[in-house]
Design a protein around this nucleic acid. Structure first.
Lengths: 233, 233
DNA sequence: CGGCATTTTGAGAAGCATCAACTATTGTGG
DNA sequence: CCACAATAGTTGATGCTTCTCAAAATGCCG
């Protein structure tokens, strides 16, 4: 039943309903509309669309893309279940980036204009958490890209991804994106990325597969990344 | 008088009080505490502090800094009047970055836990705008760092800064940070930054001064940056 | 099995990092 | 007010990493 989708949602614990009991989940379901599945390569929303809502990934994975005026595409990030998208549009009223499904995926839509209602049902803390972790694109991602060494960038991305997915298997990282997209996101060429992966595979740090990467030596990876250790909780 | 600080605030139009009338500004003043001036080099907040509040710059400028576990410092961004800081802490309850004043600066403190009150006084849209523009660190900043050419990175930063400061003189960009900090932020060495500035100065694109940079040729700068043109409003 | 897209590997050139010396600016005390 | 010291920034030469261009190999789909 439609009104109960939050109660049956497999990613509920990562989302706005994290700390809610059954009745509250029912209320939350009123504020949040699940959207139809989006096929691989299809858009969840497009840059330029009126941005009334923001989205939380429910299943699958998305990439966000911005296009510069000279036609160059840039992959802003990859988004997995429980992560928020579409905030960029809240400033101007129109999305600045587009969200593209990397596989058949779903997302839930909610209007930030009804934000006080989210508060009322008890999702305030969870929302703040989502807003704050969105910052991984900011703080962590920025620190990552500022590293000049290509190895450190990939390592940093993998460490960060592992942290974001904590709860699921932290050593088995889903990689639904193409090498081209990942290289673009990491600010390097596809060839460089291939070489880095090759190096890390040869020395046994990781084992790449088609749609995933297995991390064999997390500590080495972390050392490579010189990464922020924000185990503060 | 304390309770009226929002009404007398010079950066009111850039902040939560953007669209409010006098009575509403008075209510807003109740939700927002101005903090004492912070001297150059002093901290507004530190990584690890309990993160109950977030901040909006009122005057001056700040940098945000994250420290990796190997002791390396990374400058996450520079923040000017009307910009928001401290969101990163909302996820974990503790700030992940530290805010350092680049000159004698002030900021206003507000608790996101009282967010519904901000809504009630009519600051909702302005808050969303702040949250969304914070994304410049995400979308724009990320796209910027992913460019590999050092020239493009500086150009991109200057173009973005100019946009952020629109309203003030868009050709006269304040540069209260050290070259070291800017280079760090842009992910290049201090020497490279110096050379880039030299090149752009020599060809007449910019004119650097001690605490500011004058942009002589914005179009050339934008072309160099290959930058996102998000004039959507 | 054949054709297309994606990924890997290779050789050469360009750009940045590194190390080092020099110049300019700020701040302090005489 | 000037001289000096300390900091911040510029300029120069060299080596390494990545980008660029090009070709081969792998995987995917009809």
């Amino acid at each position: 039943m439609q009104a109960l989708h939050c109660q049956t949602c497999p990613t509920r614990r990562l989302c706005l309903g994290a700390d809610l009991d059954q009745p509250a989940l029912a209320s939350l379901s009123q504020c949040v509309q699940p959207s139809a599945p989006v096929q691989r390569g299809e858009f969840l929303y497009r840059a330029g669309d009126p941005a009334d809502d923001c989205f939380v990934v429910r299943s699958g994975a998305y990439k966000t893309v911005v296009t510069s005026n000279d036609g160059q595409e840039h992959v802003g990030g990859f988004h997995f279940p429980g992560e928020i998208m579409g905030l960029s549009g809240q400033a101007t009223g129109r999305y600045r980036d587009s969200a593209v499904a990397l596989e058949t995926s779903t997302a839930c839509r909610t209007s930030l204009a009804e934000l006080p209602q989210l508060w009322r049902v008890g999702s305030g803390p969870a929302l703040l958490r989502l807003l704050g972790s969105n910052d991984w694109t900011g703080a962590e991602g920025h620190a990552n890209l500022s590293r000049t060494a290509a190895d450190a960038r990939l390592a940093g991305y993998l460490v960060g991804l592992s942290r974001r997915l904590s709860g699921r298997a932290p050593d088995h990282l889903p990689m639904p994106m193409s090498r081209t997209d990942l290289a673009n996101h990491l600010g390097m060429t596809l060839e460089s990325l291939s070489r880095v992966i090759g190096r890390l595979t040869r020395d046994g740090t990781i084992t790449p597969a088609r749609t995933a990467i297995t991390v064999n030596d997390p500590e080495r990876l972390q050392r490579l990344a010189g990464h922020l250790d924000q185990e503060s909780a």
